[in-house]
Each structure stands twice: as C-alpha cells, then as structure tokens.
C-alpha cells in the first residue's frame, strides 16, 4: 500500500465512530496493543521530550525503506504514535517527506499535534522528517 492508501484506510476506520468515546477507546486500544519499539532503544538518545508525555523513536533503513519503531508513556499518545508508524514506516524517504500528515486532521486528532500540547508528537513528526531527510542523503550518495 502507498502512504496515501494507508491514510485512506485509517480515515475509513475512524469514519465508523460517531462519537469521541469510541474514537478514543480505539486509540487507547491501539496504544495498549503495540509493542512498537525494542526496549533497548527506550533510552535518552531516542527520547523526544514533551513536557506532558514522552515519546521514544527509532529509525532504521531496510534497503531503500525507512522503518520506524516508537513508544510513549501515555497511552493516547502511543495510540497516535502507532497510527503515524503504521502510515509512514516502510516507505522510501522521498515518499515520507512528501506526506503532510493531513489525515490526522481529517480524523479529528489535529489538536494532539499542536505545539502547545507538549506531548512530544509534533517533535516526533519533525524527527521523522529529519530521519527521512538523512536517509535520503545517505541513499543518494
């Protein structure tokens, strides 16, 4: 699936929820489910510090695809983290860099990406883009 197709499928899933409780219950479920990062990467080097919740992010290159794994200490943040990973992981750096993350707005979670939330998510998105950029340079060498 392309990033666009994955975004589409996330949006379709979320369109099933008519009220916020179902939506957040689903996010919490996603957050509880995912063992998304190797414990050894949950260190300061991979920590993206938000003042409210913390996010750990690891990126690796498999052939020409970037593979992200991540975690958060807050379960709702972790749910959103898992959505980001699901959409962006396993794609080429240029594809990742072309993505605007608009799907989060469409599923009504844009406020979680606001810098004032200080939950680490916006920094995580920036970090994802930095990794993609770095891998892009590496691949072009």
């Amino acid at each position: 699936m392309t990033i666009k197709e994955k975004e589409q499928s996330v949006m379709e899933e979320f369109s099933l929820f008519d009220d916020w409780m179902d939506k957040y219950a689903y996010l919490i479920e996603l957050g509880k489910e995912l063992p998304v990062i190797d414990e050894k990467y949950k260190d300061n080097q991979h920590l993206i510090s938000g003042c409210q919740s913390r996010v750990w992010l690891h990126a690796g290159l498999e052939e020409d695809k970037v593979v992200f794994t991540a975690d958060s200490d807050a379960v709702i943040t972790k749910g959103i983290v898992s959505l980001l990973i699901r959409v962006l992981s396993g794609h080429r750096p240029d594809e990742i860099l072309d993505t605007d993350m608009e799907f989060l707005e469409k599923i009504g979670l844009k406020e979680h990406l606001s810098p004032t939330r200080a939950n680490g998510l916006i920094s995580m998105v920036k970090q994802i883009q930095l990794y993609a950029k770095a891998f892009q340079i590496k691949l072009n060498q």
Binding site: Y24, Q52, S53, D73, A74, V75, I76, T77, N119
Partner: peptide, 12 residues
C-alpha cells in the same frame, strides 16, 4: 493512568 491521558479525556 498517565496524567496526560486523563487530562485529554476530561477535555473531551
């Protein structure tokens, strides 16, 4: 329960 999660749901 993480404070951030609780705060987010209370806001909702």
């Amino acid at each position: 329960v993480h404070p951030y999660d609780l705060g987010t749901l209370l806001d909702q």
